[in-house]
Amino acid sequence: MANNMTFLETSVGKKVLMAATGFIIFGFVVVHILGNLQLFLGPEALNQYAAFLQASGPIKWTVRIVLAASVLAHIVSAVMVTLQNWRARPQKYAVKRYQETTYAARTMWLGGPIIGLFVVYHLLHFTTGHCHPVKAGFIPDSNGVINVYNNVIFGFQDTVASGVYIFTMVLIGLHLYHGLWSMMQSVGLNHPKYNHWRKAFAVLFALLIATAGISLPVSVLLGLVTPV
């Protein structure tokens, strides 16, 4: 039964690609949220950090390209794997009960695309300002730079915008709760001695990222951080 399917034509190969690209995106999300937590350190810290990011041109573009490629590969393989799975059981059970799977695992296919839409919204919101509810956030100062600190706060003062972020952070938490564990399984990272750490790692990072992400809009809504 030799056949000439390539590595990525197999679902096992696609899952490896999803795991690898998922890990890259995850790495970015961790750094990105850590960076944004500098909101709590005041305008100086966050604005300097933002300026530093913008200044490093080639690095910035390398990161952008690697991320865009990863997101694209992650989405394409996710869609293909999901469609394969939907085709695999044309006739459903009249009664089906689950014992092990989680809500997070069963909603990966739905949470993923919502997170993808959020990323588009997020870029239009804070990067380009097209979806900025409060115009004041996107008015450049006398030097032509946007005060990122104020931009973020004005952005989150809108309850709808904040609501979108809080909701998506919960989804990202769910996606990572299953994904970070699934990822290790997909690339064959397992060892009887360390297996219990895999779920712990997933839970820890899912919680950390969701909590950190939610803390930003919530703090602004509660008036704990105010524009300068």
Partner: peptide, 14 residues
């Protein structure tokens, strides 16, 4: 590959 050709779904670690 034989498994893929047969029309089974993929493992998503449920």
């Amino acid at each position: 590959r034989a498994m893929e050709v047969a029309g089974f779904g993929a493992c998503t670690n449920h």
